[in-house]
């Protein structure tokens, strides 16, 4: 197991947001977590990354207990989070955004440039506009920049939070294909999504979260065909 979350309990602002959340991601897997708004999916990710305090439970990454570490240690460990809402650095260029992703190994210039080229190969449109200010891009392109920035940090696992929010259907399809390709090339991915149908279609395994706890688990296909899931999330 690459990433294992066990019995996570998180309290924010006096309210219990997560109750006993447990799931895991194995190496090379594409795991999806679906659920409606307010189910606690983003909170889970943020807690794994040390952005929320954890009351009890544990997060184990590559066999080591990393519960409660600070968010600035994530990148060095190989944990990469692509946050909700793109969250780029709005006033600086695409190139500089990507370079920031390489912060934790910045001293090795050759490596940084090599990874930058790899990103540009994967997303040629970024190379074309590499000096444009990040906030001037469209939502879909910004998501690409965000994912590319994540890739720059040489992660062992990519955790992507709600990447399809507010984007046009065509763009969303493109993004899901990109994620699937990434996974095929060996990257372990944890994908949090409200867009259940497309997410489950590309998932190896998936979980359903409701009201701060995991209610269902199975392979992508199993959950796609599950009656409860169908009525609640797939609109049947």
């Amino acid at each position: 197991m690459l990433l294992q979350v066990e019995d996570l309990n998180v309290v924010l602002g006096g309210l219990q947001i997560l109750q006993g959340v447990s799931f895991c991601v194995n190496e090379g897997e594409l795991v999806v977590v679906v659920g409606s708004n307010g189910a606690g999916k983003s909170t889970t990710l943020r807690s794994i990354c040390g952005m929320n305090p954890i009351v009890s439970g544990s997060v184990i990454f590559e066999g080591k207990d990393i519960t409660g570490h600070s968010s600035s240690e994530c990148a060095g460990m190989g944990l990469c989070m692509v946050p909700e809402g793109r969250q780029l650095f709005p006033e600086i260029s695409v190139r500089e955004n990507l370079l920031m992703g390489a912060w934790h190994y910045r001293k090795n210039k050759a490596r940084v440039m090599e990874n930058l080229e790899k990103c540009y190969d994967m997303f040629p449109v970024l190379k074309k506009y590499e000096n444009r200010i990040a906030s001037t891009f469209s939502g879909g392109e910004q998501q690409m920049i965000s994912i590319a920035r994540g890739l720059m940090s040489e992660p062992k696992i990519m955790m992507i939070d709600e990447m399809s929010l507010g984007l046009a259907p065509l763009i969303i399809e493109q993004l899901f294909r990109t994620i699937k390709d990434l996974n095929k090339s060996g990257m372990s991915i944890l994908l949090i999504e409200q867009n259940a149908r497309q997410a489950l279609a590309i998932a190896d395994r998936a979980y359903v979260m409701e009201n701060g706890t995991v209610t269902m688990e199975g392979t992508g296909q199993e959950l796609l065909n599950n009656e409860q899931v169908k009525t609640a999330y797939l609109g049947f």
């Binding site: 952005m51 989070m81 969250q87 650095f89 600086i92 370079l99 920031m100």
Partner: peptide, 18 residues
């Protein structure tokens, strides 16, 4: 660069290791 990044988005800069 890190200063400029932190100024614009503190949390995400942290995620990058800053």
């Amino acid at each position: 660069r890190a200063i400029r990044a932190v100024v614009q988005n503190r949390d995400v800069a942290s995620l990058m290791g800053v």
